[in-house]
Design a binder for these strands. Structure first.
Lengths: 201, 201, 201, 201
DNA sequence: TATGAATGAGTTTTCATTCAT
DNA sequence: AATGAATGAAAACTCATTCAT
């Protein structure tokens, strides 16, 4: 990150094997489940020797959490960029845009959705610092912002999951307006009767 | 128990071992996880021979799903009885009472909570017929009752989980009023021009 | 055993279960092999409790040898009767008739053929006393009758087996004339230049 | 053996464990029977870890068929070399020499004989291509050479077996002249026109 | 770094046999 | 005689991890 002058090859190469392992593992985890995937299988699919696995990961659990963090980061970055969020939007608008776009992205890739919903919890998020950012963005317009965001997050993740993976009770497209409206209702509950309230017209 | 009304011996004995296995497995699954629990361990804890396991269950997966169904049924029955629901309550009151009581029950037993949240999905519920009952109870006061209940269920289950198991972001006691209010807000969104009827537009 | 006056029912009943077990076992042994057949399976197929097996047989091996003896006896009796052997035939004619008819019987039932070829050896035969009878029948027209019969028996059993079961290299119908001619040739080798030799014309 | 001509290390080592397993299994199979030999035993006798077995063989059945093919090849090669067959011999002489020598080899090693007779069938031979070679060698002097060879083979294998393993009805030494004469008799039956070769019209 | 043969503890699963009813 | 639940020893098979190359 600093010098970056040298070691372009070795770093790249290392990254290559590591990525091959993560990609292979992701596919196997999502297809057959974490418990039924062996390290041998992962190495084989990644076209890497079994021993090489231990050069980059401590064990299967380590691998899984690294994949989870990586995938979640990817999604959020992409959703943020693609959601068309602008500075002049208020928090609710921003949040709904981000959630809406994230759902679209996940809907395109149900394997990814499965994986994240199963492995990405609130604790992962709070550790990442993103939660604090979001709280900061509320700008004091809401009371108990952490609990509020927690409820919204759990609702979104959990409700999206079955819709994406099983299309139950409805598919994700149909669910989206319902979910966004429910989120709005929750937000409304937490709104401090500050700035507005009147211009609801 | 006394004479021999029907066939108490065989049935009871059979049920005994089976239950011993289910109880032992439940405890092990919740304490150390499904993947890290072996059939030998289950049998040992149940004080039953290893081979006996295969007399009652096909494999670990079969055992798990049988436990899940059994526990969920137990909880709901108990919550219904204890929730003090009466005929003259409206749907919202009934639902909030039931959820509130279920949360209390789960809060008392975080192992049970963990287990159910991880293994009890919307599909299990919809298969059980309970969902239809609940929909019938709405009495037409809400539009899209299935989606509405789906959202509420996912929110409740998902949000309760982390609160019970990790006390994150707050413990279940603190979370409860927030959750119930959020549910109310969602219900309000789906209310058909009922009580008020007039100011709709 | 002593009285033998009574117990017609019990004997019959006993025989019933025993036969059910033998029949079930025969079918399973021939279909899936002796090694892959369990006592549970046999009992289940015979519609008899597992424990009942041990009332009639010591173990799987005991059962097998009892079946073998029983089936072989059946075949030979039937072949003898059906072969149209008469007193005025010479040994060669009798032997060829018996073999020919036995092959026909086995050809009709390849499972039986499989079973017998795999389990019926020379030693079983020699123990049964049938061999001595056959030797006696040669009437001194052949030298080394035991070895001669041994060769013929092994050739017949072994060659018939693959023909019946796999139709390899040809089916049993095609093989029969070849086999009978080969047997004749062997017999000729052992003929003592007694009675004839001249009229070979 | 010396430097490193090609890839002696891996190949040799691999071959070593594999051979150790095959040798151990062969001994156990012949001594106690296939069904009564466990993989653990084989591995233990081969002084190899249990898991190593599965590196080289799918299961016990795979192992058995690989051993059978290997042993049969060995015997035939050795018999051919040691039988003193020369170009100027006719087919009968060659065949009898080969069979005679094979019987000697098998007689020296009754375990090997047992194993091969039980597991080496006509189909194995016909798949190996050796049968075609033998047929070609007959040079048209016999009709139906395949059936003829089939009969001879089955007779030889089957008759040798009991003689070698049980010395019943006589031992292999005594049996040999009888068997060879029987084979000659069969060959004679199949000879095409003429003792000699010229008047083939 | 990278490899992959080797390991052996640990797991699942089968099944002959017993025995209380 | 008949049953079949229960047993547990033993078998098959898996797999994370190590280590010599």
């Amino acid at each position: 990150m600093e010098k970056k002058e040298e070691s372009p090859r070795s770093t790249l190469k290392k990254t290559l094997k590591q990525h091959a392992l993560m990609d292979a593992a992701f596919e196997l985890f999502t297809n057959q489940g974490f418990g039924k995937t062996s390290i041998s299988e992962i190495a084989e699919k990644a076209e890497v020797a079994k021993g090489t696995f231990y050069l980059y990961f401590k064990d299967k659990y380590d691998l899984r959490s690294r994949i989870t963090a990586h995938k979640a980061e990817q999604i959020l970055k992409r959703a943020w960029v693609e959601s068309g969020i602008t500075e002049d939007m208020n928090f609710e608008e921003k949040l709904l845009s981000l959630i809406s776009r994230s759902m679209d992205i996940l809907a395109e890739d149900r394997l990814l959705a499965t994986f994240l919903v199963k492995n990405f919890g609130y604790s992962t998020l709070s550790k990442s610092g993103l939660l604090e950012e979001a709280i900061a963005m509320t700008g004091g317009d809401y009371h108990d912002p952490e609990i509020m965001l927690y409820l919204i997050l759990e609702l979104t993740g959990s409700a999206s999951y079955s819709a994406i993976v099983n299309s139950e009770p409805v598919n994700i497209e149909e669910l989206k307006p319902h979910l966004l409206k429910a989120i709005s209702a929750i937000l409304a509950q937490y709104k401090t009767n500050g700035t507005d309230k009147k211009e609801e017209k």
